[in-house]
Amino acid sequence: MSDLGIIEEGAVIIQDGIIKDVGKSSEILKDFNTEGFKVIDAKDKAVLPGFVDSHTHFVFGGYRPDEFAWRLRGDSYMDIMNRGGGIANSVKATRNATKQSLVVLGLKRLDSMMAFGVTTVEGKSGYGLDRDTEIKQLEVMKKLGDKHPMDIVSTFLGAHAIPPEFKGKEDEFIDHIIDMLPEVAEKKLADFCDIFCEKNVFSLDQSKRLLLRAKELGMGAKIHADEIVQLGGAELAAEVGAVSADHLLQASDQGIKDMAEKGVVATLLPGTAFSLKESYARGRYMIDQGCAVALATDFNPGSCFSESIPLIFALATLYMNLSTEEAITALTINGAAAINRAQSIGSIDKGKLGDLIILEFPSYRFIPYHVGVNTVETVIKKGKIVLSEKK
């Protein structure tokens, strides 16, 4: 994760949205005819792969500022959730929201993400907890993918919380979510299935049953694991062959070892730990144990209402002990691996999509150094400039 493969005085050639060549300018441009190409002069600027935000919940209705104030006075996430706040609060608003209103909000949020250099984003459902709203969220993401330059990878998170109508009937609710899977798979509404595996939410057995059924239907498995208590979610992720396990604040040594051995990406969300005033996941330890670590924003209306990539860089480097190079890797190629897209995005390699960002500074090291400030000047998606702040 520390080797970025830096090319000094480099050039990238993109044709029909695909990277055709990359290397030293003096070599690949020596006999190259630029006629018909748009030439961008990035002298004294750093060029990186577009960022991949591999864990978000960006399609939702309503907001929860009051809950943030409650946390400031000492109320815990689970305390708020147990008295009807948290996810349940967003469920009510999202159920009442029209599809068109969610599309409008989604476009605005995607624009903001793209300004931070994100060219591919994962979005989860999970604010419906019923068939109609979960399908509505997934259909909104599909529509947004057609309308916006950014690529959207959808995840079905119907098992995000237990709705009031199923309190005390958690197994019955899991059956209800499992019954939705064939429709989601048949309509190709989601690439992945996810579940909030946590004490007082969904058990290891319930999580395993849902994820194995999703895999039978051709969906990849993801899991919200070991966020609040050490339940064994990391071990389960390795057992079921999940693509990623996310959060992992309380993941055990054994769970981390199992994930490393099975190639499960550890997607860490320091913005959420920061917002909840919790301890950070052991990113340094995970990397040292051979885990592929990704970073993501967890943009959502409750525990982390932020799409700020500079914030994630600051937290990862200052408080999780990742080097700047490791943080770059975690937000590019490892983020791509966390959504099964590493073969097509996440690095500047021949044959991959021409997804690039240009910084206003000469080095990637300015990203965490210029603390909390966006340093992205230009965003290129599939070879087209989709955002430019250049004066």
Rank of each mutant, 00 (worst) to 15 (best):
147 K>L: 15
149 P>T: 05
149 P>N: 06
150 M>E: 03
153 V>N: 12
153 V>Y: 12
154 S>R: 15
156 F>C: 05
156 F>T: 13
158 G>M: 07
159 A>Q: 03
159 A>I: 03
161 A>R: 09
162 I>Q: 01
163 P>T: 12
164 P>E: 13
164 P>A: 13
167 K>H: 14
168 G>R: 02
168 G>A: 07
168 G>C: 08
169 K>V: 08
169 K>A: 10
170 E>Q: 14
170 E>R: 12
172 E>C: 03
175 D>K: 15
175 D>L: 06
176 H>Q: 13
177 I>A: 08
179 D>K: 15
179 D>S: 15
180 M>E: 08
180 M>P: 01
181 L>Q: 07
181 L>R: 12
181 L>S: 08
182 P>Q: 14
182 P>I: 12
183 E>P: 00
183 E>V: 15
184 V>C: 07
184 V>P: 00
184 V>Q: 06
186 E>S: 14
187 K>T: 10
188 K>G: 07
194 D>L: 07
195 I>L: 09
195 I>A: 04
195 I>D: 02
196 F>K: 05
196 F>L: 06
199 K>L: 13
200 N>D: 15
204 L>Y: 05
204 L>F: 05
205 D>R: 11
209 R>I: 03
212 L>A: 04
215 K>D: 06
216 E>L: 07
219 M>H: 02
220 G>N: 11
221 A>L: 13
221 A>I: 10
222 K>V: 08
222 K>D: 04
225 A>G: 02
227 E>T: 01
227 E>F: 02
228 I>N: 07
230 Q>F: 01
231 L>D: 00
235 E>Q: 13
235 E>K: 10
236 L>M: 10
